[in-house]
């Protein structure tokens, strides 16, 4: 068993599962948005804002944001462990990635619920 402390789920199995579940959520969210745009060709600000004013859409969007964050963390963590061999640079890169993901997530929540 190889030990790890910077990966998302602390276990390869949970990372693997999270990666797949989050991918499904992101796919559904993307599909929904694409279809919504297709069926609303003359989209204006009021309609778009109205969509995001509904609670179910906010929950759905938050779920997608969280999924995206987890998905990115798992994926980028893997990339850093594959390609960045010096430990200092790798931990640094991982810290930057985690912070960025955190910032984007909080920012996203603020946009969703802030207005």
């Amino acid at each position: 068993m190889v030990t790890n402390i910077t990966n998302f789920g602390r276990s390869g199995l949970s990372d693997w599962l999270i990666q797949r579940v989050s991918a499904v959520i992101l796919a559904l969210y993307t599909l929904f948005i694409v279809l919504y745009l297709l069926f609303n060709p003359g989209l204006d600000y009021a309609t778009w804002s109205g969509l995001f004013a509904q609670t179910w859409m906010r929950i759905f969007s938050l779920l997608a944001f969280v999924s995206l964050s987890a998905h990115a963390w798992v994926g980028l963590w893997t990339v850093t462990t594959d390609y960045i061999k010096p430990t200092g640079i790798r931990v640094g890169a991982q810290t930057v990635i985690i912070l960025a993901i955190f910032v984007f997530l909080v920012w996203g929540i603020q946009i969703l619920w802030g207005a």
Binding site: M1, V2, T3, N4, N7, S11, G12, L13, D15, W16, T78, T81
Partner: peptide, 12 residues
């Protein structure tokens, strides 16, 4: 199985 569930051994 318990030796294999980390992110590297199998999941790479």
């Amino acid at each position: 199985l318990s030796e294999l569930e980390d992110p590297f051994s199998v999941f790479r």
